[in-house]
Design a protein around this nucleic acid. Structure first.
Lengths: 218, 218
DNA sequence: TGTACATCAGTGAACGCGCGTTCACTGATGTAC
DNA sequence: TGTACATCAGTGAACGCGCGTTCACTGATGTAC
């Protein structure tokens, strides 16, 4: 079934003391989360996977909620990294970069569906946690800045631009959630797409959130 | 804490036999779901709320998964009803009706957040269940027909129209999921809206999924 | 360099809990005659 | 209308399980002198 992660122990600390257990528990927790889903997540299984007794995590996380909260916070780091990765493949055009960021949003959900759900739809994290709140805020700021670049104004003081922010967010989020729930297959055309076609398809939909302003319009 | 639902027993069947227990369990299950969330949902609590012993549900649902699956299937009925309700308040314009349907989608999520999550994001339902699959298909068909009316073509054979379907779906779904995750409050403008303003705000965003085609465009 | 000692970070047994499911049972109901 | 009987739909005790958490313990590590 599950096996410890020997590589998580450096040769220097292979003995009684682990040395990097906090980090190892996060790694093991992430794997457990993706293998079993949030609904079957358990601290004991995480400890087993990390190769320690199930009492050990208490020295690093007060409760299972603490571990899940730390996982969610770290998840936002991966989430932003997935968006950065797509942006680096994009050109200089602000709209293209915004769409790329949205594709990274979806990539993350596909690669880490349970972590994505933990971050956006679980009641098992501590929403008052500072690190988690800051990580989530950083992700939101990223989107705000994309829209700011496209619209050349600050969404926080320009309601129409903030509407663009929420529209793009909702689209990327909705696509991501529907993809991992395996719902988009209902659209026959979706099933026959190559990866490149799918990216173009999603990018087109994401950009509907921030319509091009025409001269004839206000 | 929790109390039985005496009204679920008709005077004629108040004795040893319940008479409507299947129905009463679904009602109790829905309340339990919303009060405790999926993550803390338990068959024993549902039985207690329905006023029967915890062994009783086995006569109506093979397992807890069976009850959750039936709840999800019935949820799609409520989901479609929420959309119908909004449509009835809308005029004849196809775009207005499509937007209204999307608002009903969001209404449902707000009124039944845990049921919404059970339907769209849980691993605890039996996805092979016929009734559940048919209920979900009916909800999708509803959206397809809205787009069909707006575009005057069948999305199942017209890929651009199916792209409109998925775009509108993703927007309504994304808004719904972000609203119940309490994320939209990050946009300051959103917090100060009245219910009517919020509806108009969401309707505008939903309709971005199905852009008006101009004569100068293909 | 060697020793005493404090602290750290593990172990593993134990606790109590709620869970889904099973099952022998029994009261209530419906039907045949 | 009355009786015998089959079936239905409950009860409640029992099962085994995995869970999070606690705690006395101990081996490992680091530090003071």
């Amino acid at each position: 079934m599950t096996s410890p992660i020997p590589s998580a122990r450096s040769p220097k600390t292979q003995g009684y003391h682990h040395g990097e257990l906090r980090h190892a528990l996060l790694d093991a927790g992430e794997i457990e989360l993706e293998e079993n889903g949030i609904e079957r997540f358990s601290l004991r299984a995480v400890a087993k996977r990390a190769g320690v007794s199930h009492g050990a995590p208490a020295h690093h996380f007060e409760t299972v909620q603490g571990l899940l909260t730390a996982l969610a916070a770290r998840g936002y780091g991966r989430f932003i990294a997935a968006q950065d990765k797509r942006e680096q493949l994009a050109g200089a055009d602000p709209r293209e970069r915004l769409a790329a960021s949205g594709l990274g949003y979806i990539d993350f959900a596909i690669e880490h569906p349970s972590l994505f759900r933990l971050m956006f739809a679980s009641e098992r994290t501590d929403k008052a946690d500072t690190a988690l709140a800051e990580a989530a805020a950083a992700a939101f700021d990223k989107l705000v800045k994309h829209v700011q670049t496209v619209r050349d104004c600050d969404p926080h003081t320009d309601p129409p631009a903030m509407a663009d922010v929420l529209a793009c967010w909702a689209i990327a989020h909705g696509l991501a959630d529907l993809v991992i729930a395996d719902r988009l297959g209902r659209a026959e055309v979706f099933n026959s797409m190559s990866a490149v076609e799918r990216d173009a398809f999603f990018a087109d939909i994401i950009l509907r959130g921030i319509p091009v302003r025409r001269k004839s319009e206000p």
